[in-house]
Write a protein that binds this DNA or RNA. Structure first.
Length: 219
DNA sequence: CCCCAGGCCGCGC
DNA sequence: GCGCGGCATGGG
């Protein structure tokens, strides 16, 4: 495999230069200041809500939770299940997700657990798979786990010819990048942005900022 | 009408 | 370990 540490870092630099800082994970800091809630709980809740769902729809659900004072573990646990389902309905799979929000809120309380919980233990919680676990560890826990998603897989397969299982890709990224939490956060966000702008299912190779490092530009 | 979106789970093989 | 169907709303 030709792709090396420097190639991967170059991709990061190119994306950062093209799109600027993404500042993921988006959280309403002011809301949490005013309500005395922990913004890390919004990250966990958002991570569950966004499973196979557009962020646009998730935002509607989050707004509903805010309006009802339920954008926290305590808020989720104090909201009756049928009410919770109603609030998060715009995010899809709302019956599944309402139950999972209850389970996750209970198992991750207090939210400081995100600093110490083991990845395997996180994965044993209903509703938390590999990607959601790594989102929680990285964005809520500030721990160096690289998040892989469908976009990430598509991009590295196209530009480097690299493919593999979730765990294989995660260790590929982590092995080819310095262990830097802020880098991991920003890089993942940039990859998602790039997948939406250029590296779509039907790629728009014209004007792509990664043409110079891609093994198969303009198909 | 179609397809997709910041996946996960349970099942069969 | 891998592939599949079910889960559901809202946009393009």
């Amino acid at each position: 495999m030709r792709s090396s540490r420097s190639d991967l870092l170059e991709v990061y630099e190119l994306l950062l230069r093209s799109y600027g800082e993404q500042n993921w994970w988006p959280v309403d800091e002011e809301y949490h200041r005013e309500h005395g809630t922990d913004p890390r709980e919004e990250i966990v809740i958002g991570a569950v809500l966004t499973q196979n769902t557009s962020w646009r729809n998730v935002k509607k659900a989050i707004e509903n939770l805010k309006r009802e004072g339920a954008l926290s573990f305590e808020g989720v646990l104090n909201t009756p299940l049928d009410k919770l389902e109603e609030l998060i309905r715009p995010s899809g799979y709302y019956r599944q997700k309402a139950r999972r929000l209850k389970v996750v809120s209970e198992k991750l309380s207090p939210v400081s657990k995100v600093e110490s919980i083991g990845r395997e233990e996180l994965l044993s919680i209903e509703g938390i798979g590999r990607e959601t676990a790594d989102v929680i560890l990285l964005y809520a826990g500030g721990r160096p786990y690289f998040v892989i998603d469908a976009y990430t897989k598509r991009i590295v397969e196209r530009i480097f010819g690299v493919r593999g299982s979730y765990e294989e890709l995660r260790s590929w990224f982590e092995g080819n990048l310095p262990k830097d939490v802020e880098l991991y956060k920003e890089f993942h966000a940039l990859l998602d942005e790039h997948a939406k702008r250029f590296c779509r299912k039907d790629p728009l190779c014209e004007g792509c900022p990664l043409t110079q490092v891609c093994i198969q530009p303009s198909r």
